[in-house]
C-alpha cells in the first residue's frame, strides 16, 4: 500500500518536473524569438508547431512531411538491413575462424576507421547520383560496427561451455550453431543498436548532399530557402522516428534474449 503510494508520488513528481522543464524550454525559446535577433532567423515555437501540422497535408518540395519521412525510412531500412546481414556474416566468420580472421581482418582494418559519411564523394563518383548510392552510404555507415560487435561476440565464447558441449557429445560442426551463435546474440543486438543510429546519420548526410527528397533534403532545403521551420520539423520528425525504431529494436531484443541479465 505504502509502496504503491510512494511510486505514484514519484511518477507524479516526474510528470510535473518533466512538463515544467518542457514549458521552461518553450518559454526561453519564445522569449528569445520575441526579445532578441534570434527571432529574425529562427521560427517561434508557435510557427514551428503550425508548420509541423501543415506539413502533413501541404507538400514541401515534392512530398508532404510523411512522404519525406517514409522515403528516408525506406532507405535506412534497406541500407541498414543489408549492412546488418553482411556485418553479422563477416563478423561471425572472423570471430569463429582464425583463418578467416587472418585473411579478412587486415583488409577490413583499412575500411573500418573510415566514417560512412566520408564515402559519399567516392560513392557518387562510382555509382552516380541515385538510390543505390544512398544505400551504399548507409551500408558503409553501419557495416564496420556490425562486424566489430559480432566478431567480439563470437570471440568471447566461453571455452568452458564449448568443453561442456563436447563432453555432452557435440561435434565440431555443431559447436557453431549451438554455442557460438546463441552466445553472440546479445553482442549482435548491441551492434544493431549502434549501427541503427549511425545509419540515421548516414541517410541524413547522404540526402543532404545527393537527394531531392527525404528528411535530410527537407532539413537542408529549410536552410537554403530560408524557411528554418522546415528544418526544425525535419529534425523533430527524424528524432521521433529514430526513437521509435530504437524502441522497437530494444523490444525485439528483450523478447529474443530473455535469458540475459536484462530481463531481470
Amino acid at each position: 500500500m505504502t509502496v504503491r503510494q510512494w511510486i505514484s508520488d514519484d511518477t507524479k513528481e516526474t510528470w510535473i518536473y518533466g512538463i515544467l522543464g518542457f514549458l521552461l524550454f518553450l518559454m526561453v525559446w519564445q522569449m528569445a524569438c520575441v526579445f532578441t535577433d534570434f527571432g529574425t532567423i529562427f521560427p517561434s515555437p508557435g510557427v514551428s508547431i503550425r508548420t509541423f501540422f501543415m506539413a502533413f497535408i501541404e507538400p514541401i518540395g515534392r512530398y508532404t512531411l510523411l512522404g519525406h519521412i517514409s522515403i528516408s525510412l525506406k532507405r535506412v531500412l534497406i541500407g541498414y538491413g543489408l549492412s546488418s546481414v553482411a556485418g553479422i556474416i563477416i563478423g561471425l566468420l572472423m570471430g569463429y575462424s582464425k583463418m578467416a580472421h587472418a585473411i579478412i581482418y587486415p583488409i577490413f582494418c583499412i575500411v573500418r576507421p573510415i566514417p560512412g559519411i566520408a564515402w559519399i564523394p567516392l560513392a557518387i563518383l562510382w555509382i552516380g547520383i541515385g538510390e543505390s548510392t544512398i544505400y551504399f552510404i548507409i551500408f558503409m555507415g553501419g557495416f564496420s560496427q556490425m562486424v566489430m560487435n559480432t566478431m567480439d561476440g563470437a570471440q568471447h565464447i566461453s571455452p568452458e561451455l564449448v568443453g561442456v558441449a563436447k563432453v555432452l557429445g557435440a561435434k565440431e560442426n555443431q559447436i557453431f550453431r549451438k554455442i557460438v551463435l546463441p552466445s553472440s546474440v546479445p553482442y549482435i543486438f548491441t551492434g544493431l543498436q549502434t549501427s541503427l543510429s549511425t545509419s540515421w546519420m548516414a541517410v541524413l548526410a547522404a540526402e543532404m548532399i545527393t537527394a531531392r527528397e527525404g528528411a535530410g533534403w527537407l532539413i537542408l532545403s529549410g536552410m537554403q530557402t530560408g524557411r528554418i521551420e522546415n528544418n526544425v520539423i525535419g529534425m523533430i520528425s527524424i528524432g521521433a522516428v529514430g526513437l521509435l525504431l530504437a524502441a522497437l529494436l530494444r523490444e525485439t531484443e528483450r523478447r529474443l534474449c530473455i535469458w540475459t541479465v536484462r530481463s531481470r
Binding site: 568452458e160 561442456v164 546463441p182 552466445s183
Partner: peptide, 18 residues
Amino acid sequence: FDPRVGMVYQTTALFPWL
C-alpha cells in the same frame, strides 16, 4: 570425448541461453 563419460562441473556451467 567418450560418450560413456558425463561430467558435473565445479562452476555453474549451464548454457545461459537455454
